[in-house]
Simulated assay, not measured.
Amino acid sequence: MSADSIWSYGPTTGHVEGQDLTGYTVDSTDGTIGVAEREADPAGMLHLVVDTAVWAFGRSVLVPAGTVTGIDTENRTITVACTRSEVKGAPRFETDSETLDPDYLTRVAAYYRDLPGQRTPAS
């Protein structure tokens, strides 16, 4: 299991263990990214798969839980600490099998970890 905080929700996000985030709107610092299709946790690497709809040509993106800054259950929104263009620039997500691919997940972690404003990985 990874101790890397990019794969876990921060203590102030409002995340509750077992909470179903499917269907929540995902907002970046500069606009809406899309809708959470599902949450996955292969080998301790918790992340959201987000349907970006039209703005990113209808593709889905993988967003690590560590990028989440807040969850509003009343308004069904998730806020992340990155911009739309940063999410769009992440390693391309194409198939569900990638969520089980350690090399792909390592690239995703490195990309998001290096963005400005991200929490420091746990040691």
Results as ranks from 00 to 15, higher is better:
R92D: 10
A109G: 02
A43T: 13
V50T: 13
S60T: 10
S85Y: 06
F93Q: 02
E86W: 00
L48P: 00
V87M: 05
I33N: 00
D41N: 15
L48Y: 00
I71Q: 06
A36G: 12
V50S: 13
H47N: 07
P42M: 11
T79Q: 10
R38F: 08
P102V: 14
I71M: 06
A36F: 04
D41H: 05
T52P: 05
G34N: 01
T83G: 07
D114R: 12
D51E: 09
D114P: 04
G89E: 14
P42N: 14
P102D: 13
D96R: 14
N75R: 09
A36K: 05
G89M: 07
E37S: 13
D114F: 05
D103K: 03
W55K: 11
L48C: 01
A110E: 11
F57T: 03
I71P: 07
R59K: 15
N75A: 12
R76Q: 15
A40P: 00
C82M: 15
P91M: 04
T83A: 06
G66R: 09
G44V: 11
V108A: 08
E37H: 09
L46S: 08
V63N: 05
T69R: 08
A43Q: 12
A109Y: 00
L105C: 03
E39Y: 03
A109N: 01
L105I: 02
V54C: 11
M45S: 02
V87F: 07
T73Q: 11
L62S: 12
T106N: 10
D51Y: 01
T83R: 06
A56D: 15
G66C: 09
R76F: 05
R113M: 04
T52D: 06
D41E: 14
G34F: 00
R38T: 14
Y111L: 02
L48S: 00
A65R: 06
V63P: 01
A110R: 14
R38C: 11
A90Y: 04
G44L: 10
V35A: 03
E86N: 01
G70W: 02
S60K: 15
A53E: 15
T69G: 13
D72S: 09
L62K: 01
T95A: 11
